[in-house]
Amino acid sequence: MPDTSTSSHGAHNPDFHPDLRKVARYMPRQVVTPVTLPVIRMVTRLQGKRTPADVEELTLNSGVKVRLFRPTGVPVPAPALLWIHGGGYILGTAAQDDELCRRFARQLGITVASVDYRLAPESPYPTPVEDCYAALTWLARLPAVDPQRVAIGGASAGGGLAASLALLTRDRGELQPVAQLLVYPMIDDRTVERRGLDNPGHRLWNQASNRFGWSAYLGEADRDVAVPARREDLAGLPPAWIGVGTLDLFHDEDLAYAERLRAAGVPCQVEVVQGAFHGFDGVLPKADVSRAFFRSQCDTLRQAFTDRY
């Protein structure tokens, strides 16, 4: 795996990917602060007020809400993906990823459930990951879903929760996801202690946001259990896909986790995108670099569903 950390971190003139250069100039380095959080939450909640016709919104017995995307004309039972949205553990809604979930469902002919887990600091660890677990067990029991072919995935904090969920399902032994899709996952709280990570190329999420998100999520939790990258035993986890840009705050922690997965015997595909900032594919989903990133995720899922068949 190429070590691209030196070429990006600490550089004064960020070398953005050509597809992202124009928009990167206008992207803020930090969006979330304790002051802006209530406003951003209000705006994101408004986004999810209307449910499109092709989306089913359901409330599970546990009280967790799920948005369901079902493919048409596909033989059942079909594979499924539990998707977990990002937002630094402190904001975001399942509705923000409607278009992405729709693309997964269409592209792969699978059922996709997007989980509206409860957010920190009101609901710190372990509530969000337990909400995801409740959604996963519910999804695996749907008549249209093949319980042997269910994958989990998420972006940013959602990627961190997907990694936590992979560990939880392994430890409980009730379900066996076929893959974990970790899209620039927020996976290691120790990054906040690192110096020299204030790179001018970072966008949307920087060290100050990271500090805020982790402290809200972890509360009084035992960090050695709550933080995926702190877990000592990674053996027996589902095969992983990890994707991250070189101008992402999580670049180093993600590649370190990938190395540890491989060392534990877990197959792990790594996709490093030169000059990409955090959340680039959400900001510019139609850019060639974002399409290739998404295609790589679909290829991994397709393979995982086929291997289990």
Rank of each mutant, 00 (worst) to 15 (best):
G173M: 02
R230Y: 12
N206Q: 13
L168T: 03
N206C: 14
P177S: 01
A208M: 08
V227Y: 00
S209G: 15
W205D: 06
A155F: 10
V192F: 08
R190Q: 14
D188E: 06
W205A: 00
S156M: 10
L175E: 14
L161S: 05
D224C: 03
W205E: 02
G158P: 04
Q148I: 00
E193F: 13
G159A: 09
Q180S: 10
P228R: 06
G196P: 04
V227G: 08
G159L: 00
A221R: 04
F212N: 14
N199I: 00
N210E: 04
A216K: 01
L165I: 09
V183E: 05
T191N: 10
G201P: 12
S164P: 12
G196Q: 07
I152D: 01
W205K: 01
N206K: 09
L182V: 02
G158E: 04
A208C: 11
D189A: 15
L167V: 11
T169D: 03
D189G: 01
A151V: 13
N199S: 15
G213Q: 11
N199A: 12
A179W: 04
T191Y: 00
E193P: 07
A229W: 02
N206A: 15
A162G: 07
R172A: 03
A229P: 10
V150R: 01
G219E: 03
A162Y: 00
H202R: 07
G158S: 09
G196H: 03
L218T: 11
R172Y: 03
L197I: 15
L218C: 08
G196R: 06
A151C: 08
M186D: 02
A208T: 13
W205M: 04
N199L: 00
A155R: 13
L204Y: 12
L181A: 04
F212E: 13
R170W: 10
L167F: 00
Y217E: 12
L182C: 08
L182E: 01
E193K: 14
M186T: 09
G201T: 09
L168C: 05
G154R: 05
Y184F: 13
S156P: 04
R231S: 01
A179R: 14
T191I: 07
T169Y: 04
A162S: 15
R223W: 07
L175C: 14
R194H: 11
R230K: 13
